[in-house]
Design a protein around this nucleic acid. Structure first.
Lengths: 110, 110
DNA sequence: GACAAATATAACTATGTCGGCATATACTGA
DNA sequence: TCAGTATATGCCGACATAGTTATATTTGTC
């Protein structure tokens, strides 16, 4: 609720965070990790895309601090690093839902 | 708090919203509109970029439903359509802040 | 050490996006 | 109607990004 404008350099940081979350596959990965860590192999199976592609996106998520990486023996497990991610998604979902409802009403002029 | 996963097609919609908010200039425009409508000319002056560029980004914001457009005579006023935008930004800011603090602690091993 | 499995990286292509410039459109007033 | 102002659009070049394929790297097993 603080009314301070975003600090000057902060705009870029915030934009970067949003950009990381602006790819459907990355959102899907986050969603798959929501209830616990998963290996790259598991994620690849669940995403119907190539393993290199999954690795690349996981790296982006990790670099952005959204996900943590832990190696156990031969396999690597990724996990959510920041639960606020899901709050963001819920907020956006609600906003979109409301907008679509409003748009829909335009057509139901009884 | 609902624990339902995002509906299937929703991922793309959410990603699209995040993508719209992933450009510094667009965030800047939203910030400038936070306390009331502004004309394209005003926004252009405050953004140190070209007027066509501002118009283009405003169109993207409008198409995404983040901003409304109202024409009064010769000038066009844009305004925030969805206040939840700022909640998103604050959440991201807090998250980044916390992460940076954590990273900073690594260096202060007294 | 040799092999197999899991993950990461590199090189490439195709597509998307930003910003600038020129220009078109819309409105106002004389 | 003509000039002037405000905004939008089209085109272009530079650059970033997603996905694929091939390959490298790491780890565990024999």
């Amino acid at each position: 609720m603080a009314d301070r404008p975003l600090p000057d350099g902060a705009l870029d940081l915030v934009a970067t965070r949003f950009k990381i979350m602006s790819e459907p596959l990355r959102l899907r990965l986050l969603q798959l990790l929501q209830h616990g860590e998963r290996s790259v192999g598991e994620l690849t199976e669940l995403c119907s895309t190539s393993q290199p592609n999954v690795s690349k996106h996981l790296k982006i998520l990790q670099t952005g601090g959204l996900v943590t990486r832990q190696q156990k023996g031969n396999t690597v497990y990724y996990a959510i690093a920041d639960q606020s991610i899901f709050t963001l998604c819920e907020l956006v979902c609600s906003s979109i839902e409301e907008r679509l409802k409003t748009q829909a009403q335009v057509f139901s002029t009884t």
